[in-house]
Design a binder for these strands. Sequence first.
DNA 1: TAATTAACTTGTAATGATTCCAAATTAGAA
DNA 2: TTCTAATTTGGAATCATTACAAGTTAATTA
Lengths: 154, 154
Amino acid sequence: MTNSSVMEDTLKLLKDHKLRVTPQRHIILAYLASHHNHPTVETIRDALSKELPNMGSSTIYNTLNTFVDHRLVVELQNGDGSTHYDYFGTPHYHAICTNCGKIVDVTYPGFDKDEKTLEEKTAEISGYMISGNHMEVYGLCPECQVKLGITQKK
Amino acid sequence: MTNSSVMEDTLKLLKDHKLRVTPQRHIILAYLASHHNHPTVETIRDALSKELPNMGSSTIYNTLNTFVDHRLVVELQNGDGSTHYDYFGTPHYHAICTNCGKIVDVTYPGFDKDEKTLEEKTAEISGYMISGNHMEVYGLCPECQVKLGITQKK
DNA sequence: TAATTAACTTGTAATGATTCCAAATTAGAA
DNA sequence: TTCTAATTTGGAATCATTACAAGTTAATTA
């Protein structure tokens, strides 16, 4: 995807959600849509310091909270004390390294169906009116397995 | 389950995990094992103020972190800003109300198998050596559906 | 296009959950 | 019973996040 199409797509996304289009919102959303690094507020601030040198952290927090409310973005904790954010363009879940905190997106054919099934079962059992879910799987990432000298059995 | 058997069971659990048995640890673990209220540190402090009037919050944090490391307990966020804790005696997941934060435990026949499958797929795809998972399903709890005047379609 | 205004951004202060640390205590081993 | 490393305590420190007031701006309306 070209840079310009990311800008176009995220612009449309903001408009579709009836969100006022400010440079801050547009640039932050485009950054998230084109990076899969699960950034923190600080990471975003640093990454965009050239484009938006005067943007305060409050703005980033406000903006991300708005995106989370609109389900454009999800929040993730990896144990390092701060919240990480992930653009939620297509359904997926996360694998999180218990050693270094590395987060990767995961999906597989049929994940959307499994997800649906879980939500339906949960609605039946709990009586909740379900609106979403988060799944996280924990373990050692490949790098940490090597670093710690652990051999994964096949 | 009688109160005394909870005390016996949690004592055994601490010993099995080679954790030094202090009154604080034993009483906190017994409290968690016999309550399904997903308490915060403050809730635990208040609930145990009779039994352990001099216990500081630091001790509760230390103790809970130890339990989490040993997988006796899991941490939960419901959006109210503080961490909630849940004794993890049998496999289950959580439904969390997006309106009031109410957390309920959920499981169903075959959940352990579904969970296993998810972990195996994740290992294959990501290369992570999996050690655990958390699933959360969000929605409106029955009380909030009524409170907000929402009718759930069958 | 210009005027209007509610919404947004900014910067700083406040909050509050959690961790850190040094001193006192204690569980469990010898 | 003694000994010591682990734990608890209480208060201070940290740090992520939110609150707030003032300035700015997107987008509606005429």
